[in-house]
Amino acid sequence: MTLNDQQVERYSRHILLQDVGLSGQEKILNAKVLIVGTGGLGAPAALYLAAAGVGTLGIIDGDKVDMSNLQRQVIHFTPDLDKAKVQSAKEKIALINPDVKVNAIEDLFLAHNAMDILKDYDFVIDGTDNFPAKFLINDACVMAKKPFSHGGVLRFDGQTMTHVPGEACYRCIFDDLPPSNAVPSCSQAGILGAIAGMLGTIQAAEALKFIIGKGDLLTNRLQMFDALKMKFREVKFKKRATCKVCGENPVITELKDYEQPVCDIRQK
């Protein structure tokens, strides 16, 4: 492919990077990334990936834009209230970068559609807000052999890791869903908006690194940060032989929808 003059200029700051360059940018322009959830994590990730020129962005979300989202879900603007989130996101992406093709799926990411949606993408970003979805994404990606970036936030804390086929998965750390009664209560569901931004952009950076094939991904490492103290920590971990999905004797061989957690302050 040949970049036109406008593209050369638009992506000049990428091209300048020795590890990106023209070939890297071409890879980005040819890449397809699925973002599951266009909320606190998905919004910044979508913005950066769109700006970076990722050729195809899939976005899946079944929600509509709510007033309480606007504090952190930066792809949605006040006039978008009550608009489907994927529609709102699609409009912004088009404004940022018309190079990007958007597949907007107004739906939930569930066991019945997961594999079908996944199959067209090179990389997946987990921007969901609940454990059933996070475990489903993990299991589906492991089965479909798709790399993905996990992200989770809580109050002032965040954590992220990247799975690539053959390496440790989310279940290698977190064996299974926490019991429903242990899921954060409403009081714990608070989040400093900027922290979602920090994490979403880390996930976008991981996706881009994967696409251009440069650097060290967060594989077999869990990166954690406490933004209150602004301390980052990394814990190395290994693929766990007893992992239910990627271990030596996997017990999970098909996808299923787990029970939804009880707390849902979005409806407030």
């Binding site: 959830g37 909320g39 606190g40 994590l41 998905g42 989202n69 879900q73 987990d126 921007g127 969901t128 807000d129 609940n130 454990f131 996070k134 992200g151 989770g152 936030v153 809580l154 804390d157 965040g158 954590q159 750390i173 977190f174 064996d175 926490p178 242990a182 899921v183 954060p184 569901a189 989040i191 979602a196 994490l199 869990l222 954690m224 814990v235 957690p261 979005r266």
Partner: peptide, 25 residues
């Protein structure tokens, strides 16, 4: 997880507590 109540921690061990973080939306 089933080893949580059997695995002994002794002098010089390294332990990491990794918390579930389910937020994101």
């Amino acid at each position: 997880r089933e080893k949580f109540d059997t695995q002994a921690v002794t002098d010089g061990d390294k332990v990491e507590f990794l918390y579930f973080m389910g937020g994101g939306q």
